[in-house]
């Protein structure tokens, strides 16, 4: 008990003074993950820049964010003070989990950050480039094992898209799912799987050290600081971005939406946000309002199509 009291005094002294909440941000994931970090970074930036007096973050983990999304749609409807963080993974999870609530039911505000998918092989591999991989894939798709995140996630979707674009049956992709980034990376480094596919950040240090060779990146054009051809340059017409976004509640008025947009815009252009992005190594892929809504629609359609092709969604 003594410890609790001591702890509360210390932590109380360090915690920010409580005031009326201006924003309540839902992170539909457990504390510590990417969405949670995004929500808490927004909290820091919004408060430090005095855009909002007080921001609260609450976590509703589960089922790729769809549990949080369902709760948000039900409870936040019409409340302009409530926001939800989400990402591309949610698009896939909604489809594979047959979620009754979809992203059509929230008000998209902006895409905040994004990461491109990188395709890597161990340094000792005989695959040198995309063409080499495609040749192997065409010869015997089962002999090429792909290591990445959970089935139906961004990594799996990208693998399916690559196979399809290369003219190989996407259901024949021998995809080996790993539960965490570290586990997948270990399997690639240990030569357990033929190729690895995941967000560039997972591999960056290994690529720099020369233990992994990058054979392609999923961006539209070459990315500054990444010495790798795009998938398109490698002859495979695939581009994909694993983005994170913020959305507002359903049923808010146009003025309310504009106000939230303005606040988010102010936050994104602030010094605090720039510093957070730099510290965390996140790329700023800010895209707001209607442009983002259009992009979201496009992503949802292409994801639905590829998930059907892989056989994850009927």
């Amino acid at each position: 008990m003594k410890q609790f009291v001591l702890a509360s005094i210390i932590a109380g002294a360090l915690a920010l003074p409580a005031a009326a909440a201006d924003y309540k941000i839902m992170a539909p994931a457990a504390p510590g993950g990417g969405w949670d970090q995004t929500a808490r970074s927004m909290q820091t930036a919004l408060q430090d820049e005095k855009i909002s007096g007080s921001v609260q973050v609450n976590n509703v983990p589960g089922a790729g964010g769809t549990i949080g999304l369902a709760q948000f749609v039900n409870q936040a409807s019409g409340d302009p003070a409530q926001l939800i963080v989400g990402g591309y993974v949610m698009v896939g999870a909604i489809l594979t989990n047959a979620s009754p609530v979809t992203l059509d039911q929230v008000t998209p505000i902006a895409r905040l950050t994004g990461e491109y998918e990188a395709l890597v092989v161990p340094a000792a591999s005989d695959i040198k480039d995309m063409a080499g991989l495609v040749a192997k894939l065409k010869a015997d798709p089962g002999a090429v094992s792909w290591g990445g995140g959970s089935a139906g996630g961004t990594d799996h979707i990208t693998a399916g898209l690559i196979a399809k674009a290369a003219g190989v049956d996407p259901t024949k992709v021998n995809y080996i799912a790993y539960s965490g980034g570290g586990e997948a990376l270990a399997a690639i480094l240990g030569g357990q799987v033929t190729v690895g596919i995941s967000g560039y950040g997972e591999f960056a240090e290994q690529i720099k050290a020369g233990t992994l060779r990058i054979i392609g990146i999923s961006s539209d054009a070459k990315v500054e600081g990444i010495d790798a051809p795009t998938f398109k340059e490698g002859g495979v017409d695939v581009s994909i971005q694993n983005w994170r976004m913020v959305a507002a509640a359903p049923g808010i008025s146009a003025e309310q939406k504009a106000a939230v947009l303005a606040d988010v815009e102010k936050m994104v252009t602030s010094a605090s946000w720039t510093k957070i992005l730099a510290d965390k190594g996140w790329a700023n892929t800010y895209l707001a309002g209607d442009d983002f809504a259009a992009q979201l629609k496009k992503d949802t359609e292409s994801t639905a199509a590829i998930l059907k092709d892989i056989g994850l969604v009927k």
Partner: peptide, 22 residues
């Protein structure tokens, strides 16, 4: 609740009693 929700930032649901004082 005060120790863990206010002091240590655990997200514990607040009700009328909690809103009365915070």
């Amino acid at each position: 609740w005060i120790i863990f929700a206010k002091g240590l930032q655990l997200s514990l649901p607040a009700g009328p009693l909690e809103h009365l004082l915070f």
